[in-house]
Design a protein around this nucleic acid. Structure first.
Length: 676
RNA sequence: GGCUAGGUAGCUCAGCUGGUUAGAGCACAGCAUUCAUAAUGCUGGGGUCGGGAGUUCAAGUCUCCCCCUAGCUACCA
């Protein structure tokens, strides 16, 4: 019976370009979707850009355009990159859309009706200089209980008291150093705690991989707290109904974007009903492909919000890990932060699709792109083994048999073993374990090549009596090739089209593996895939080095409520002069009790002394530092650390651990001199 | 540091509830072959399964400790 399936990939953020990390997820999703379609199921695949939040505002401001302009352009760029990798959405929408607004408001309203929303008027500290509310960690002051100075806004390190930031004495804004004023702000909360038992149960269903469930247990065991779903104006997003200056937090409306995109698709195509997929208690399926960095949003908040708003639960979360390149994190300086468009201008998208498929095991483990392995693997598996089967037999059929296959197979048993393999290969696809699928297909390709080698058609053809045998052998081999193409088609759709052209057949579906192609006329063979040369890879890496700008793992940054550092390629002199560097003399240094890496330094910066913590203990003994001159960032905002407040940062080079090298000033410099 | 995952041949990885001499592909070496996009076939070398201790008749597979890697978090300001 045909299943009815709605599939999503996580929504890429609208403030940065698509890179190979995004591509892993979207390629995995697309492969799964194509597989399900080949099997005859009814599948809808939707995605959208995630557009809201402060990151978008900052980026738009930086570019000197409106948020709407930014979001519109980014969506076009993103879609172009995804299409370049043959990712085939039914709809790619935007969270800044009418549909999304509708559902965000509807869900909010239903949550309200169920008493799952409450507001709390919080007196928050507000930086009148920067015109923004200060989260707890951006305020420091004296502990209201024990008067310990320089404590963060949530609790005291000295006496363990917990309190509200407004209770701090002598509070200071970490941003501007000005004294914050009290300002009332009403916040809207989703009462997640009511869902603790519900989620404990849900997390242990088949919807979530066990290792992910383990990770989620951390949150669940700690006890769930209410989720703050509002942000104060100014904010790029949807206003909360009934308010003028409150907006939905971006992570509230982001997953709703799945619904918004699907609704847009339903309205524009008129052959599928929204409620069939989102109303509770139906027999359709909803699958979300996501990265492990956003599991809390999809496995805790999202199911709870859906239930609270009377929508169905996701059927399954398909969680994947991150991409590393040559064993390390994608890095702009190493040129391994590879943008989708840079890959596409140098290499065939199907190489990457195949490589990702070969390494995806349906787990949340990270996947490494080892460039050498990538080249070898694609060349030997795809070109050397699979395509080669057709290539080495096609000539005989064309030359000696007018392009026509024999009317029967040469070896039914071998054929049957290929047919039988379809079931385990299908199981692997279903479970996202394309690695095993690829391995099994590869083994079949080996068997096909062995078969050809055994029969040596190039020798048989010399004997006129054996001519028929040649046709049988090549018919057999090309039929085996055809099955391999069927099995690989979800991964390599473009190659499959070329193979269909060669075979002169309609688009292949999974069902076609059951019957061989006999007495059929073939087209002339043309190469379907060419080998990768390392040169192309090197060029791509070279191109990646300078082009990488902005955007890293934005979803993570948002999850933490922080802003990612936006980095243009250059800064101007004004930017640089914002950083106040001074020569400092270390007049005291001592290890911090209980800290493995920290030294507490007392610095003479000319007109005064200050205390700085520095993570250089493994590289320097405290004693050898006293008396040294070094360089300190003098206007860095004070930072509350566990052992006290650090009033600046000393500069050092090196990867860390024992390899840290403190900067020093040549003789003649004195403490307090500006460095410029 | 805490939590969640990993550490198996040069590389990428399989090894289920413990059970014969630890496997595959790629790479490498030798041979064969020339139909094929320098593709293919056969044979071979190569691992004390991160380290140590323990449980067991038997451990890559279970327990404990330690080391290393990744992610999150934290004292990386």
């Amino acid at each position: 019976m045909a299943r009815r399936i709605l599939v999503t990939s996580a929504l890429p953020n609208a403030n940065g370009p698509i890179h190979l990390g995004h591509m892993l997820e979207h390629i995995q999703t697309d492969i799964w979707v194509r597989f399900q379609r080949m099997r005859g199921h009814e599948v809808y695949y939707v995605c959208a850009d995630d557009t809201h939040g402060t990151a978008t505002m900052l980026r738009a401001e930086q570019e000197g355009i409106s948020e709407e302009q930014l979001v519109t352009q980014m969506r076009i760029d993103h879609l172009q990159d995804f299409n370049g990798f043959l990712v085939n959405y039914d709809n790619y929408h935007s969270t800044h859309s009418e549909e999304n607004k509708f559902f965000a408001e509807l869900i909010y309203q239903r949550l309200q009706e169920r008493d799952l929303i409450f507001t709390e008027e919080v007196e928050q500290l507000y930086d009148p200089d920067k015109k923004l509310f200060l989260a707890d960690r951006f305020v420091i002051g004296e502990c209201p209980r024990c008067a310990q100075p320089d404590q963060y806004g949530d609790n005291c390190e000295n006496c363990s008291a917990t309190y509200n930031a407004v209770e701090l004495k002598n509070p200071k804004s970490v941003y501007s150093g000005t004294t914050p004023i009290l300002k009332k702000s009403e916040h809207y909360f989703f009462d997640l705690a009511q869902y603790t038992d519900f989620l404990k149960e849900w997390v242990r269903t088949e919807a979530v991989q066990p290792e992910i469930a383990n990770k989620l247990s951390e949150w669940l065991e700690d006890g769930l707290r209410a989720w703050d779903i509002s942000r104060d104006a100014p904010y790029f997003g949807f206003a909360i109904p009934g308010t003028t200056d409150k907006y939905f937090y971006v992570w509230l409306d982001a997953p709703i974007g799945y619904m918004g995109s699907f609704k847009h698709y339903c309205d524009n195509t008129n052959h599928v009903t929204f409620d069939d997929f989102w109303a509770p208690d139906n027999h359709t399926e909803v699958h979300h492909f996501i990265g492990k960095d956003i599991i809390n949003f999809h496995a805790l908040f999202w199911p709870a919000v859906l239930d609270g708003a009377d929508f169905r639960q996701p059927t399954r979360l398909h969680v994947h890990g991150f991409i590393t390149v040559n064993g390390t994190k994608m890095s702009k300086s190493r040129g391994t932060f590879i943008l989708a468009k840079d890959y596409l201008s140098h290499l065939d998208p199907e190489y990457l699709r195949y490589y990702y498929a070969a390494k995806s095991r349906g787990s949340a483990d990270d996947i490494d792109i080892n460039m050498e392995d990538f080249v070898q693997r694609v060349n030997s598996d795809l070109v050397g083994k699979v395509v080669n089967i057709a290539s080495r037999c096609a000539g005989f059929i064309t030359k000696h048999f007018d392009g026509k296959l024999a009317a029967a197979l040469d070896n039914e048993k071998l054929w049957n073993s290929f047919v039988t393999a379809s079931s385990s290969i299908a199981d692997y696809y279903e479970a996202d374990d394309t690695s095993k699928a690829v391995r099994e297909i590869s083994a079949l390709a080996d068997a096909a090549n062995q078969y050809i080698a055994q029969h040596e058609p190039w020798n048989l053809i010399k004997d006129p009596d054996q001519k028929d045998k040649v046709q049988l052998v090549c018919t057999q081999a090309i039929n085996l090739f055809r099955l391999l193409v069927i099995y690989l088609k979800p991964i390599l759709p473009a190659m499959a089209v070329k193979a269909e052209t060669f075979l002169q057949v309609d688009p292949l579906n999974w069902e076609n593996h059951k019957a061989p192609l006999l007495g059929h006329k073939l087209a002339k063979f043309k190469p379907m895939l060419t080998r990768i040369e390392m040169k192309q890879v090197d060029k791509m890496l070279a191109a990646s080095a300078p082009s990488a700008a902005s955007d890293t793992v934005l979803s993570t940054a948002q999850a933490q409520g922080t802003q990612p550092a936006e980095q243009g390629q250059y800064i101007n002199i004004d930017d640089f002069t914002k950083v106040q560097l001074k020569v400092a003399k270390i007049i005291a240094a001592e290890p911090v009790e209980g800290a493995d890496k920290l030294l507490q330094l007392t610095l003479d910066v000319g007109d005064h002394q200050r205390q700085v913590f520095s993570g250089i203990k493994q590289a320097y003994d405290a004693d050898q530092l006293v008396g040294r001159l070094t360089v300190v960032v003098a206007n860095l905002a004070p930072r509350k650390m566990r052992f006290g407040v650090s009033e600046g940062m000393v500069l050092a080079a090196g990867p860390g651990g024992e390899d840290i090298f403190l900067l020093s000033a040549d003789d003649g410099a004195v403490a307090g001199m500006d460095v410029k």
